Computed example of a mutant assay.
Amino acid sequence: MPIIKSIYKPPFQFKNGFLATVYSGLVRKVNLEQQRERIETRDTDFLDLDWSYSENKSDAVIILLHGLEGHAQRPYVTGAAKLFNQNGIDAVCVNFRGCSGEDNRFYNSYHSGATDDLDDVIKHCVDRKGYSKVYIKGISLGGNIALKYLGEDRQIPKQVKSAIAISVPVHLNGSAKELHTLTNKVFTIRFRQHLVNKLKIKTIQFPDKISIAEVNSIKTLRDFDEVYTSKAHGFLGALDYYEKSSSLQFLKNVNVPTLLINALNDSFLSPECYPIKEAKQNPNLFLEMPKYGGHVGFIAKGNIYYNELRALEFVKTI
Protein backbone atom coordinates (compact mmCIF):
# COMPACT_ATOMS: atom_id res chain seq x y z
CA MET A 1 0.00 0.00 0.00
CA PRO A 2 1.43 3.41 -0.93
CA ILE A 3 2.60 5.56 1.94
CA ILE A 4 -0.03 8.08 3.07
CA LYS A 5 0.96 11.73 2.72
CA SER A 6 0.25 13.43 6.02
CA ILE A 7 -1.54 16.77 6.26
CA TYR A 8 -0.77 17.30 9.94
CA LYS A 9 0.36 20.83 10.78
CA PRO A 10 0.77 21.60 14.49
CA PRO A 11 0.66 24.99 16.17
CA PHE A 12 4.06 26.62 15.68
CA GLN A 13 5.40 26.05 19.20
CA PHE A 14 4.58 22.35 19.02
CA LYS A 15 6.69 21.72 15.96
CA ASN A 16 9.28 20.95 18.60
CA GLY A 17 8.91 17.24 19.30
CA PHE A 18 10.08 17.48 22.91
CA LEU A 19 7.55 20.19 23.76
CA ALA A 20 4.75 18.32 21.99
CA THR A 21 5.57 15.14 23.89
CA VAL A 22 5.80 16.83 27.30
CA TYR A 23 2.66 18.94 26.86
CA SER A 24 0.61 15.96 25.72
CA GLY A 25 1.84 13.76 28.55
CA LEU A 26 1.79 16.19 31.47
CA VAL A 27 -0.47 19.15 30.63
CA ARG A 28 -3.38 17.95 28.51
CA LYS A 29 -6.63 17.23 30.38
CA VAL A 30 -9.70 15.32 29.19
CA ASN A 31 -12.92 14.95 31.18
CA LEU A 32 -14.61 11.60 30.63
CA GLU A 33 -16.97 9.56 32.80
CA GLN A 34 -15.96 5.91 32.88
CA GLN A 35 -17.37 2.75 34.43
CA ARG A 36 -14.98 0.05 35.63
CA GLU A 37 -15.38 -3.64 34.95
CA ARG A 38 -13.03 -6.38 36.11
CA ILE A 39 -12.61 -9.49 33.99
CA GLU A 40 -10.64 -12.67 34.56
CA THR A 41 -7.87 -13.60 32.16
CA ARG A 42 -7.28 -17.08 30.79
CA ASP A 43 -4.54 -17.65 33.39
CA THR A 44 -6.73 -16.49 36.33
CA ASP A 45 -5.24 -13.03 36.66
CA PHE A 46 -7.47 -9.98 36.17
CA LEU A 47 -7.81 -6.92 33.94
CA ASP A 48 -9.62 -3.73 34.86
CA LEU A 49 -11.52 -2.24 31.93
CA ASP A 50 -12.82 1.34 31.97
CA TRP A 51 -15.87 1.82 29.77
CA SER A 52 -17.48 4.92 28.28
CA TYR A 53 -20.49 4.91 25.99
CA SER A 54 -22.07 6.72 23.09
CA GLU A 55 -25.39 8.47 23.64
CA ASN A 56 -27.35 5.75 21.87
CA LYS A 57 -26.86 1.98 22.05
CA SER A 58 -24.03 1.01 19.73
CA ASP A 59 -23.01 -2.21 18.02
CA ALA A 60 -19.42 -0.92 17.70
CA VAL A 61 -16.63 -0.55 20.25
CA ILE A 62 -13.06 0.68 20.15
CA ILE A 63 -10.52 -1.01 22.39
CA LEU A 64 -7.86 1.44 23.57
CA LEU A 65 -4.42 0.28 24.74
CA HIS A 66 -2.11 2.58 26.67
CA GLY A 67 1.68 2.86 26.60
CA LEU A 68 4.47 1.97 29.02
CA GLU A 69 3.39 2.66 32.62
CA GLY A 70 0.22 4.36 31.43
CA HIS A 71 -3.36 3.62 32.40
CA ALA A 72 -6.92 4.07 31.17
CA GLN A 73 -7.25 7.63 32.44
CA ARG A 74 -4.32 9.06 30.50
CA PRO A 75 -5.50 11.84 28.13
CA TYR A 76 -4.10 10.11 25.04
CA VAL A 77 -6.52 7.28 25.83
CA THR A 78 -9.55 9.19 27.12
CA GLY A 79 -9.28 11.77 24.33
CA ALA A 80 -9.85 9.08 21.74
CA ALA A 81 -12.58 7.43 23.82
CA LYS A 82 -14.47 10.71 24.14
CA LEU A 83 -14.29 11.46 20.42
CA PHE A 84 -15.49 7.99 19.47
CA ASN A 85 -18.33 8.19 22.02
CA GLN A 86 -19.43 11.47 20.46
CA ASN A 87 -19.57 9.69 17.11
CA GLY A 88 -21.70 6.71 18.10
CA ILE A 89 -19.01 4.22 19.14
CA ASP A 90 -18.52 2.82 22.64
CA ALA A 91 -15.02 2.70 24.10
CA VAL A 92 -13.22 0.37 26.48
CA CYS A 93 -9.92 1.62 27.86
CA VAL A 94 -7.79 -1.31 28.98
CA ASN A 95 -5.56 -1.13 32.03
CA PHE A 96 -2.70 -3.56 31.53
CA ARG A 97 -1.86 -5.85 34.44
CA GLY A 98 -0.76 -3.83 37.45
CA CYS A 99 -1.67 -0.49 35.85
CA SER A 100 -5.15 0.11 37.28
CA GLY A 101 -4.02 1.17 40.75
CA GLU A 102 -3.89 -2.38 42.11
CA ASP A 103 -1.07 -4.84 41.57
CA ASN A 104 -1.91 -7.96 39.61
CA ARG A 105 -1.92 -11.39 41.21
CA PHE A 106 1.20 -12.92 39.70
CA TYR A 107 4.91 -12.18 39.41
CA ASN A 108 4.57 -11.64 35.67
CA SER A 109 2.64 -8.58 34.50
CA TYR A 110 2.51 -6.94 31.05
CA HIS A 111 5.07 -6.31 28.34
CA SER A 112 5.38 -5.11 24.74
CA GLY A 113 4.66 -8.51 23.22
CA ALA A 114 1.97 -9.84 25.57
CA THR A 115 -1.02 -10.30 23.25
CA ASP A 116 -3.17 -12.90 25.03
CA ASP A 117 -4.78 -10.26 27.24
CA LEU A 118 -5.85 -8.29 24.18
CA ASP A 119 -7.34 -11.48 22.76
CA ASP A 120 -9.26 -11.99 26.00
CA VAL A 121 -10.62 -8.42 25.87
CA ILE A 122 -11.71 -8.80 22.25
CA LYS A 123 -13.51 -12.06 23.01
CA HIS A 124 -15.16 -10.41 26.02
CA CYS A 125 -16.42 -7.59 23.78
CA VAL A 126 -17.75 -10.05 21.20
CA ASP A 127 -18.99 -12.98 23.28
CA ARG A 128 -20.15 -11.25 26.46
CA LYS A 129 -21.00 -7.75 25.24
CA GLY A 130 -22.32 -8.69 21.81
CA TYR A 131 -20.48 -6.09 19.71
CA SER A 132 -20.50 -6.83 15.98
CA LYS A 133 -17.80 -4.27 15.14
CA VAL A 134 -14.56 -4.05 17.06
CA TYR A 135 -11.80 -1.53 16.42
CA ILE A 136 -8.41 -1.47 18.13
CA LYS A 137 -6.26 1.55 18.85
CA GLY A 138 -2.91 1.09 20.53
CA ILE A 139 -0.53 3.83 21.58
CA SER A 140 3.24 3.29 21.86
CA LEU A 141 3.71 -0.02 23.72
CA GLY A 142 -0.02 -0.66 23.27
CA GLY A 143 0.41 -0.12 19.54
CA ASN A 144 3.15 -2.73 19.39
CA ILE A 145 0.86 -5.19 21.15
CA ALA A 146 -1.95 -4.45 18.70
CA LEU A 147 0.24 -4.84 15.61
CA LYS A 148 1.86 -8.03 16.89
CA TYR A 149 -1.56 -9.48 17.74
CA LEU A 150 -2.86 -8.80 14.24
CA GLY A 151 0.17 -10.40 12.58
CA GLU A 152 0.49 -13.49 14.74
CA ASP A 153 -0.54 -16.98 13.70
CA ARG A 154 -3.90 -16.87 15.46
CA GLN A 155 -7.56 -16.67 14.52
CA ILE A 156 -8.64 -13.04 14.55
CA PRO A 157 -12.39 -12.73 15.28
CA LYS A 158 -14.31 -11.57 12.22
CA GLN A 159 -15.77 -8.73 14.28
CA VAL A 160 -12.35 -7.00 14.32
CA LYS A 161 -12.76 -4.57 11.44
CA SER A 162 -9.71 -2.28 11.64
CA ALA A 163 -6.90 -1.03 13.84
CA ILE A 164 -4.89 2.10 14.46
CA ALA A 165 -1.41 2.24 16.01
CA ILE A 166 0.21 5.49 17.15
CA SER A 167 3.87 6.31 17.91
CA VAL A 168 4.86 2.65 17.90
CA PRO A 169 8.37 1.30 18.59
CA VAL A 170 7.91 -1.57 16.15
CA HIS A 171 11.64 -2.36 16.51
CA LEU A 172 12.09 -2.60 20.26
CA ASN A 173 15.87 -2.90 20.37
CA GLY A 174 16.30 0.15 18.17
CA SER A 175 13.83 2.11 20.25
CA ALA A 176 15.55 1.01 23.46
CA LYS A 177 18.81 2.44 22.15
CA GLU A 178 17.11 5.74 21.29
CA LEU A 179 15.51 5.95 24.73
CA HIS A 180 18.93 5.72 26.33
CA THR A 181 20.32 8.74 24.49
CA LEU A 182 20.79 12.06 26.26
CA THR A 183 17.81 13.53 24.38
CA ASN A 184 15.41 11.20 26.17
CA LYS A 185 17.06 11.10 29.61
CA VAL A 186 14.23 12.95 31.34
CA PHE A 187 11.71 10.42 30.00
CA THR A 188 13.75 7.32 30.80
CA ILE A 189 14.36 8.45 34.37
CA ARG A 190 10.61 8.86 34.85
CA PHE A 191 9.80 5.48 33.29
CA ARG A 192 12.50 3.74 35.33
CA GLN A 193 11.30 5.23 38.62
CA HIS A 194 7.73 4.07 38.01
CA LEU A 195 8.82 0.58 37.01
CA VAL A 196 11.27 0.15 39.88
CA ASN A 197 8.76 1.36 42.47
CA LYS A 198 6.25 -1.23 41.29
CA LEU A 199 8.92 -3.93 41.20
CA LYS A 200 9.76 -3.26 44.86
CA ILE A 201 6.22 -4.40 45.68
CA LYS A 202 6.96 -7.65 43.86
CA THR A 203 9.96 -8.24 46.13
CA ILE A 204 7.58 -8.37 49.09
CA GLN A 205 5.03 -10.58 47.37
CA PHE A 206 7.54 -12.85 45.64
CA PRO A 207 10.79 -12.82 47.70
CA ASP A 208 11.79 -16.16 46.17
CA LYS A 209 11.81 -14.65 42.67
CA ILE A 210 13.56 -11.30 43.10
CA SER A 211 15.56 -9.51 45.78
CA ILE A 212 15.78 -5.84 46.67
CA ALA A 213 19.49 -6.02 45.74
CA GLU A 214 18.53 -7.02 42.20
CA VAL A 215 16.02 -4.17 42.04
CA ASN A 216 18.64 -1.70 43.26
CA SER A 217 20.97 -2.84 40.48
CA ILE A 218 18.55 -1.44 37.87
CA LYS A 219 20.00 1.80 36.51
CA THR A 220 18.42 1.86 33.02
CA LEU A 221 15.31 0.64 31.24
CA ARG A 222 17.39 -2.05 29.57
CA ASP A 223 18.51 -3.17 33.03
CA PHE A 224 14.86 -3.45 34.02
CA ASP A 225 14.15 -5.65 31.01
CA GLU A 226 17.21 -7.74 31.79
CA VAL A 227 16.44 -8.18 35.50
CA TYR A 228 12.64 -8.42 35.40
CA THR A 229 10.76 -8.32 32.07
CA SER A 230 12.72 -11.04 30.31
CA LYS A 231 12.99 -13.41 33.28
CA ALA A 232 9.39 -12.97 34.42
CA HIS A 233 8.01 -13.70 30.97
CA GLY A 234 10.14 -16.55 29.71
CA PHE A 235 12.78 -14.78 27.60
CA LEU A 236 16.52 -15.44 27.68
CA GLY A 237 17.35 -11.80 28.31
CA ALA A 238 16.50 -8.26 27.26
CA LEU A 239 17.69 -8.70 23.66
CA ASP A 240 15.71 -11.94 23.26
CA TYR A 241 12.65 -10.14 24.61
CA TYR A 242 13.12 -7.24 22.17
CA GLU A 243 13.67 -9.52 19.19
CA LYS A 244 10.70 -11.81 19.83
CA SER A 245 8.26 -9.08 20.88
CA SER A 246 8.92 -6.49 18.16
CA SER A 247 5.89 -6.14 15.90
CA LEU A 248 8.01 -5.27 12.85
CA GLN A 249 8.44 -8.93 11.90
CA PHE A 250 4.66 -9.49 12.08
CA LEU A 251 3.56 -6.61 9.85
CA LYS A 252 3.72 -8.67 6.66
CA ASN A 253 0.97 -10.93 8.04
CA VAL A 254 -1.51 -8.22 9.05
CA ASN A 255 -4.73 -8.82 7.11
CA VAL A 256 -7.00 -6.36 8.89
CA PRO A 257 -6.94 -2.75 7.61
CA THR A 258 -4.46 -1.02 9.89
CA LEU A 259 -3.22 2.56 10.10
CA LEU A 260 0.20 3.24 11.63
CA ILE A 261 1.12 6.85 12.42
CA ASN A 262 4.73 7.50 13.48
CA ALA A 263 6.03 11.07 13.53
CA LEU A 264 9.41 11.68 11.96
CA ASN A 265 10.49 13.79 14.94
CA ASP A 266 9.61 11.15 17.53
CA SER A 267 12.79 10.87 19.57
CA PHE A 268 11.70 7.48 20.96
CA LEU A 269 11.85 5.81 17.54
CA SER A 270 14.82 4.43 15.62
CA PRO A 271 15.03 4.36 11.79
CA GLU A 272 13.71 0.78 11.81
CA CYS A 273 10.46 2.05 13.33
CA TYR A 274 9.35 3.49 9.98
CA PRO A 275 8.39 0.29 8.09
CA ILE A 276 8.14 1.71 4.57
CA LYS A 277 8.98 -1.56 2.81
CA GLU A 278 6.45 -3.52 4.85
CA ALA A 279 3.70 -0.97 4.17
CA LYS A 280 4.37 -0.97 0.43
CA GLN A 281 4.19 -4.76 0.33
CA ASN A 282 1.06 -5.19 2.46
CA PRO A 283 -2.22 -3.76 1.09
CA ASN A 284 -3.71 -3.81 4.61
CA LEU A 285 -1.01 -1.66 6.21
CA PHE A 286 -1.33 2.12 5.85
CA LEU A 287 1.73 4.07 7.01
CA GLU A 288 1.58 7.79 7.74
CA MET A 289 4.73 9.63 8.79
CA PRO A 290 3.97 13.25 9.75
CA LYS A 291 6.95 15.58 9.97
CA TYR A 292 5.82 16.64 13.44
CA GLY A 293 4.06 15.09 16.41
CA GLY A 294 6.81 13.92 18.74
CA HIS A 295 5.77 10.90 20.79
CA VAL A 296 1.95 10.87 20.93
CA GLY A 297 2.00 14.66 20.65
CA PHE A 298 -0.20 15.34 17.61
CA ILE A 299 -1.69 18.52 19.06
CA ALA A 300 -4.54 20.16 17.16
CA LYS A 301 -7.38 22.58 17.86
CA GLY A 302 -10.14 22.07 20.40
CA ASN A 303 -8.24 19.52 22.51
CA ILE A 304 -8.89 16.85 19.89
CA TYR A 305 -5.64 15.45 18.57
CA TYR A 306 -4.84 14.81 14.93
CA ASN A 307 -4.23 11.10 15.52
CA GLU A 308 -7.66 10.81 17.17
CA LEU A 309 -9.37 12.45 14.20
CA ARG A 310 -7.44 10.20 11.80
CA ALA A 311 -8.42 7.13 13.81
CA LEU A 312 -12.10 8.02 13.61
CA GLU A 313 -11.82 8.84 9.92
CA PHE A 314 -10.04 5.55 9.27
CA VAL A 315 -12.65 3.33 10.94
CA LYS A 316 -15.46 5.24 9.22
CA THR A 317 -13.99 4.78 5.75
CA ILE A 318 -12.95 1.11 5.99
Rank of each mutant, 00 (worst) to 15 (best):
D266V: 08
I156Y: 01
N56I: 13
D59I: 06
A80R: 07
P207S: 07
Y131E: 05
I204Q: 13
A311H: 03
K148R: 15
K209F: 06
V134L: 04
I210Y: 00
P2M: 10
I204F: 11
Y242S: 06
F187N: 05
L32W: 04
Y292F: 15
V315G: 00
G302I: 12
H180M: 06
K280V: 05
F250G: 05
D48T: 08
I122H: 04
K148A: 07
G17A: 03
K29C: 09
L182Q: 09
A232N: 02
N197E: 11
N108V: 11
I145K: 03
L199I: 02
N284T: 08
F187R: 01
L239T: 14
A81Y: 02
N95D: 05
I201D: 00
Q13S: 11
V22S: 04
Y110I: 03
K123A: 10
F235I: 08
I166N: 09
N173E: 14
H71I: 00
N108M: 06
L147K: 01
K5I: 07
E226D: 13
S267H: 14
P11W: 12
E55M: 12
D225Q: 02
I4F: 04
V30A: 05
N303W: 06
M289E: 12
Q35Y: 15
V254S: 07
I62E: 02
K123H: 14
V227A: 09
V196S: 04
K123Q: 15
A279P: 00
P290I: 07
D116H: 13
I89H: 01
L199V: 02
L269H: 01
Y53P: 00
S245I: 10
S270P: 02
L179C: 10
V170T: 12
E278I: 01
Y306E: 09
T21C: 08
P290E: 07
D240W: 05
S100N: 08
F314N: 07
R42K: 15
E37F: 14
A114L: 13
L285E: 06
N184C: 07
T115K: 02
R36A: 09
D119R: 15
Y107S: 03
S230E: 04
L287D: 02
G302V: 12
M289A: 03
N56S: 14
G151V: 12
Y274H: 05
L309A: 08
D50Y: 11
R38N: 09
H66S: 00
I204N: 10
K291G: 04
E226A: 08
W51G: 01
D240Y: 03
K291Y: 12
A279S: 12
Y228E: 06
A165M: 06
I210G: 02
R192P: 00
